[in-house]
Amino acid sequence: MNASSFGAPLDHVDVAILDTLRSALEVADPMPPDLDERVKFALTVQSLRAEIAELERLPAELAGARSGDYTRVHTVTFTSESVSVVVTITHLDAETSRIDGWVDGPATTAELRERDRSSTAAVDDEGRFAFPSVPRGLVQFVFRSEDADAKPVITPSMEV
């Protein structure tokens, strides 16, 4: 390789190389087909001045989190500056899940945003909340406290 080689304008060989690389990655490591949808759903949350919680999968879940798993119960945690949340999802049947959660932090309500509706559950004195019957699909959580000045905490969207 010399200076004139990498200073040269792109030609059809370069374009073919990049096109092949792109098609190889589309075959071997495609973007999840629902990623655009998950992002767009997460961005529809009303309160934009929010703290963003990040998803942490528990180490034991790593093996089971692959596609095609049939685990009935899984647990994920979300953490942000002010709260951490553990959420357990139980698949009751093909259409329905139960969600049990525990919040460590100032939250007093948990909102579950689904595609077409949203429901709210109170967080009890011990930090527990539950949504006993949730249609399986994409959801997002929003946690709020009684402190009017505190920002709500939003999570990325996820499948339950």
Partner: peptide, 23 residues
Amino acid sequence: PTRGRCLAALRKALLSDASWGAP
């Protein structure tokens, strides 16, 4: 707008590999 160091390196490796069906 030019090829750049990374693409030049990849191109050189590919063009010297007989198993690459060069366009």
